[in-house]
Nucleic acid binder design. Structure first.
Length: 427
RNA sequence: GGAGAGAUGGCCGAGUUGGUCUAAGGCGCUCGACUCGAAAUCGAGUAGACGGGUAAAACCGUCUCGUGAGUUCGAAUCUCACUCUCUCCGCCA
């Protein structure tokens, strides 16, 4: 959520920022409502001031044995007026809230301006895409032939965009999860969290999924509960409605969770394999940081995510998203894209964002810079560390051999119980 | 699912015959005194949001005692609904 006071003070600047994100003329209504709100507020507070002092006077008169009837009647009339203005104020504030909750974050000045992903800027590359001396297969063929991924039976259980992992497939997925968590907790200083996979609407509003993106989520029937679309939601909301100590910052959290997405509007994209699923596994990184350090933390977090791909030997590149391609809550985002032979291009496997105080304001997460200071909003960051299913796909495709077997990356061998090659097991 | 108890400031906790509650007290924290320094001790200060005000402050007002509504001239205190927590019982991985 954007700061109402800040919008009031710099409407042109905010308008420009929103235009970079292809949103035009969003502020006119806000500014009108905001001004009306203040007008009514001043008036109603004056009336309340009168009521408060008059009520005290009534109490005093009664004690002194005087008759307060006349004054009581007057205050009653003022009370009616107050009620009317309060109602009006409440509906205006509701309107304002609705507008503010629907506006995306403003892009950081370093973010390139553009309509869509074609304006994204490549920042760096790591590794060389492998040259195959045979025709490489896609992971959806490899997985089925190795009998470790089963899309048909997954459809029987749940429908399209679900996957059953079997045998070494399930084992590999689990190995990747544990490997990611170990690297981030042991080497990068994150605290592991195992959060609930269902959260309430407050959390979803706090991180920005609600109210605008309700369609993208799975809601639990008959309850105000949602399946988490990413661990960013529970992790960021852990400190919702809290005032933190500056000495406790920055806070680093990591969590493995399944992620549930309705993927409304993505029909026909990435239909094959595990790339785009209604349920997928992800290890997430979340940071809560002081405002002046958040951009350093974003760089570090991106490196943390890159690190696991380096250890796995998977070629990738880092891309700075342009204004039109960024998510709703982000001020700046780096995508990490892993090389996928089946796509013959780099494919997103992680997204690392600084949301500045956008989520902190919605979720009311503050800190006290020093004991004497007023509370300030923290900055929140989140990044995939990284998507597990896509990592599995990248491993299958990048480590495949001509006979259809797949080498296990060296760092994963201990997590695979010493197994170095995944090959078809005869049943 | 049944029965009961409860929710107060950064934390703990008092306060319900409605009216100096502008919420006692403690802890924590900040500043000061004492000290070579620290601890201990003593003194002072210490909630947030919104609006006005100011160059910035000071300052003024409104709201907030789980959330929402209601009664009243006036609500932490009375009424209703909801949410959450705890205890006991039942069921259960």
């Amino acid at each position: 959520m954007l700061d109402a006071k800040m919008i009031r003070a710099n409407p042109e600047k905010v308008e420009k920022g929103l235009e970079k994100r292809n949103i035009k003329g969003a502020l006119k209504e806000f500014l009108e409502l905001d001004e009306e709100r203040r007008k009514i507020l001043i008036k109603v507070e004056e009336l309340k001031n009168f009521r408060n002092s008059a009520s005290k006077e009534v109490g005093k008169m009664k004690k002194e044995g005087k008759d307060p009837q006349e004054l009581m009647e007057k205050v009653r009339q003022v009370g009616d007026e107050i009620k009317e203005l309060d109602d009006k104020l409440a509906s205006i504030e509701e309107e304002i809230e609705k507008i503010l909750l629907g506006l995306p974050n403003l892009p950081h000045e370093s973010v390139p301006i553009g309509e869509d992903e074609t304006s994204n800027v490549e920042v760096r590359r790591w590794g060389e895409p492998r040259k195959f001396d045979f025709e490489p297969k896609a992971h959806w063929d490899l997985g089925v032939e190795l009998d470790i991924l089963d899309f048909e039976r997954a459809a029987k259980l749940s429908g399209a965009r679900f996957t059953v992992y079997k045998g070494m497939g399930a084992r590999l997925e689990r190995a990747i999860i544990n490997f990611f968590l170990d690297v981030h907790t042991r080497e990068h200083g994150y605290t592991e969290i195992l959060p609930p996979f269902m959260v309430n609407a407050h959390c979803m509003t706090g991180t920005g999924q609600l109210p605008k993106f309700a369609e993208d989520m799975f809601k639990v029937e008959g309850r105000e509960m949602y399946l988490v679309p990413t661990a960013e939601v529970p992790l960021t909301n852990l400190h919702r409605e809290e005032i933190l100590d500056a000495k406790d910052l920055p806070i680093y959290f990591t969590a493995y969770t399944p992620c549930f997405r309705a993927e409304a509007g993505s029909h026909g994209r990435d239909t094959r394999g595990v790339i785009r699923q209604h349920q997928f596994n992800k290890v997430e990184l979340v940071k809560i940081a002081e405002p002046d350090k958040s951009y350093d933390e974003l760089e570090k977090m991106t490196r943390d995510a890159e690190r696991v791909l380096q250890l796995l030997g998977l070629p990738y590149r880092v891309v700075l998203l342009c204004t039109g391609d960024m998510g709703f809550s982000a001020a700046k985002t780096y995508d990490i894209e892993v090389w996928l032979p089946s796509y013959n291009e780099y494919k997103e496997i992680s997204s690392c964002s600084n949301c500045e105080d956008f989520q902190a304001r919605r979720a009311n997460i503050r800190y006290r810079p020093s004991p004497k200071d007023k509370p300030r909003y923290v900055h929140t960051l989140n990044g995939s560390g990284v998507a597990v299913g896509r990592t599995l796909a990248a491993i299958l495709e990048n480590y495949q051999q001509e006979d259809g077997s797949v080498l296990v990356p060296e760092v994963l061998v201990p997590y695979m119980g010493g197994i170095k090659v995944i090959k078809r097991e005869e049943m």
